[in-house]
Design a protein around this nucleic acid. Structure first.
Lengths: 317, 317
DNA sequence: GTGAAAGCGCTAACAG
DNA sequence: CTGTTAGCGCTTTCAC
């Protein structure tokens, strides 16, 4: 690795001057600037980020804390974060918390030790979040965050839940099954309540169960047939895709016998047969916005992103 | 951020001694060690990685260069890399090249400027790889790499292609369509040749086309019906899932009318109906192995991972 | 066993 | 406009 010193020597100037041109600040005569730039190119010089970070106490790295990138929804956020971070000269260090507080804490410490400019985090439950913030001070931006008091981008999860309910109501839902993820995670809880309230209001009966409860296929079948379920509302598209497959294995026709709605609009939701009706959270956009907030390119500290209904084939009407 | 100096002062020792205990090297009296450790805990001290990196000229960061993490196959590799990197105290900086040489080069430079210990990269075509290595010197480990001369982990792609052919032959394939990704990428080319040779050997007729050519649905339909295709072999599962959906939209029964094989065994391949028959490359394992190679935990510089056939419902017999 | 001090590569005063 | 220099936080000789 060539250093700034070597560049300076070769160009016949001091390191300060070289530093001025690579950072494009301070006065440098145009001709010496040109000359230094040539030397830099010739030597293939790149500043050592560790040295810069040590001095500035801030690195060009963004810490990205996700529950699990294997869910395409988070992958989309990650790509959004990465693409725009790169555009602004930032790198992203990834951390999968697996929804574990310990891992999340560890990653935040790690991000801190790398002098990350900040961390972008997707939602934990409320209590966890406050604990995390208190844990170490580093700028935080939340994606899918909970309260207006925090910096971040989010969508209206309660409304999203209502939207799901509306869709199935139009599809003449009579007996609904809501399959949800861990309700201690605020986003899922809000959606759940949105659909629940909407269904109740329309006097439509429903059952609900946790995603983990459908692992057992025979139990799942009993649940479906026992309550003559004709509609399934899922917390997210991964779940919806899984459920679609299971329901089809049981020889039900989707959407005629059973209609299914998902959430997130992950790319695969459009590839199934039938294609899955879902609510688009614009995950990629959420990611790009989060970076803007973190880098203060964006004026507003908090923003709500519009939800988009993707009516497709897995629901009736 | 507390520094080593503060710890030293509070503990009433020199920074050198503190450094010795945090790195667990050199002689330190047991009692002073205990004392220092207490102070560290009390101050919640964590070493500044930038400073360490500056001195050591090597950071605790692994650069991970992927074509695109939105393909679950690469996501699996990424998770494998991340999980085991974390276990060894390393972080991972991600870079999506989008199969672009320019972006790949940029990322390698960036990884270098961050003093990454090395980069884990998934395959480009042969020419590109050599160019990349020449570009900057930093330890490289390839996943799905091409030649024995390079460090890395791979599977036998040619054999994988043969395996795909064998599966459909057992399913009584008469008119095969091979839908492949860019053949300038060695892995895809090898698989393609594996299937092609196997099919030729068995005197089974086949057509082939590039993945991008099936975007147009009507053209796809013509291709299928025109050649009375009864079998489709795909370069990867994402493609297979997409094709499955398209074929079903066209009212073909899978596998009776048309059987489909994928490649990779991504999680979604098991969630479709019918479930997709595929070849498992053990992507996660590939990722973990790559880290071991990079950190020299693993003795062998190169290793070949076994392919596993996942016979499921999308193929006949 | 422990401390003093040099120096990793860079930036930002400050001096000229 | 340009150079000199201190110092970011850490590790590692080298003394003692």
């Amino acid at each position: 690795m060539t250093t700034i010193k070597e560049v300076a020597k070769m160009a016949g100037v001091s390191v300060a001057t070289v530093s001025r041109v690579i950072n494009d600040n301070g006065y440098v005569k145009e001709s010496t600037k040109k000359h230094i730039e040539e030397v830099i190119k010739q030597l293939n010089y790149m500043p050592n980020e560790a040295a810069r970070t040590l001095f500035k106490k801030k690195s060009k790295i963004i810490g990205l804390l996700l529950p699990d990138i294997s869910n395409p929804f988070f992958m989309l956020i990650a790509r959004g974060v990465e693409d725009i971070a790169l555009k602004h000269g930032y790198q992203v260090l990834i951390g999968n918390s697996d929804n574990t507080l310990d891992k999340a804490k560890d990653y935040i410490s790690i991000f801190n030790s790398h002098n990350c400019i900040g961390v972008i985090s997707t939602a934990f439950d409320h209590h966890t979040i406050t604990e995390l913030i208190a844990y170490q001070h580093i700028p935080f931006v939340y994606v899918d965050r909970l309260s207006e008091k925090q910096h971040g981008v989010s969508t209206n999860h309660y409304q999203g839940g209502q939207l799901q309910a509306n869709i199935v109501i139009k599809g003449n839902a009579k007996h609904v099954l809501i399959i949800h993820e861990d309700l201690s995670i605020e986003a899922f809880k809000l959606r759940y309540e949105g659909t629940k309230n909407m269904l109740t209001q329309e006097h439509i009966s429903f059952h609900s169960c946790l995603a983990t409860q459908i692992e057992d296929e025979t139990q799942f079948e009993r649940m479906i047939s026992g309550s003559s379920i004709d509609t399934i509302i899922c917390s997210n598209d991964v779940l919806a895709i899984k459920v679609l497959g299971m329901v089809q294995q049981l020889n039900y026709n989707v959407p005629n016998d059973i209609q299914i709605v998902g959430y997130d609009n992950i790319p695969f939701s459009e590839m199934t047969f039938p294609q899955i009706t879902t609510i688009d959270q614009s995950a990629y956009h959420l990611g790009t916005k989060a970076v803007s907030k973190l880098l203060n390119i964006d004026d507003k500290p908090f923003e709500e992103i519009e939800l988009i209904i993707k009516k497709r084939q897995s629901t009736r009407n």
